[in-house]
Computed example of a mutant assay.
Amino acid sequence: MSVDEPEAVEAFERLGLTSYEAKVFIALHRLGSGTARDVARIADVPRSQVYSVAESLEGRGLLEIQQSSPIRYRPVDVDEAQDILRDRFESERERAFDYVDRVRQESTGEETQEDIWTVRGRDRVDDRVVDLLSSAKGRIVFGTRLPELVTEPIERTLECAVESDVEVLAVSRTDAVREQLGSLEGVQTDSPPSHHGEDHRSGRIVMVDDDGILLSVIDDDGSETAIWSSGSLFASVLIQLIEASTQTPS
């Protein structure tokens, strides 16, 4: 990959150097070593700024200063500079994420996220469905009218749930879906109550235990959008409402 100097300067800036630091460092590698006058002659850095920039680079371990008259500067070699910047990046990364993790742990007991989340896109909904199914401890209800929404990962996850003594019920108005899921050992199948009308925009429904739920719709362009919630009062109440609505009227 070939880059020009402005791109190299921008790359150094993303690694934590200032623009002047990057330009002085590059200029010294062109020179091998040099004075402030030498650096200012080939770099877009005022000579008056070279001294303080060089001191900063020395503090970073990226150049050496020869106490002569005039003072001369020499950059460390490229491999050493790479190691220094890599170590600095890793150190800053650890500091940043250690702080975020500490803040997250300190917030225990407070509401730190919304109860309801939105997921857009078939692949992302697939992943969220599998995650919810995998969290089941006692009971799963999975429903869809569309065979293409019953993916192999979903089938495997349902089979694993059955092996872990989780009760699995598959609900669909579509014969092909009931046959597909009913072929999985231990998976029970059923049809929605007859008093429920068919919704041609419905996608999937997942209910896990009594506090995990996902509902999706198929958009006009064929994409899928879902809302989901887990471990929340919202999920528990919505599951109760759905189960009450599926009971056959007396």
Rank of each mutant, 00 (worst) to 15 (best):
E148T: 11
T144Q: 05
E155V: 12
G197M: 11
C160Q: 13
R204L: 12
D219I: 03
L133V: 06
V168I: 02
A170Q: 04
I205K: 13
I218R: 10
Q188E: 15
D221C: 00
S229K: 05
G186P: 02
S194H: 10
R145C: 08
D221Y: 00
G143N: 00
E224Q: 11
S236G: 11
S216C: 05
E224I: 13
D221G: 04
L132T: 02
L214Y: 04
V187S: 08
H196L: 15
G197H: 13
A176N: 10
V141L: 07
V237S: 15
L184C: 05
T189R: 01
T144P: 00
R178D: 03
R204N: 14
D131M: 02
G222S: 01
I154Y: 06
A136F: 00
E198R: 13
E167K: 11
A235M: 05
D199I: 13
D131H: 03
R204V: 15
T151H: 06
R173D: 15
S236R: 15
L169E: 11
A226G: 07
L238E: 14
A244L: 15
G138Q: 09
T225A: 09
I239Q: 13
T189F: 02
V177P: 07
A136T: 01
K137Y: 07
P193M: 11
E167Q: 13
S223Q: 04
L238K: 12
A244P: 08
S191M: 13
V217G: 07
E198M: 13
D199H: 13
S230I: 06
E148F: 10
D190Y: 10
D219K: 11
P193V: 10
D199L: 14
G203R: 10
E179L: 12
E163M: 08
Q247E: 15
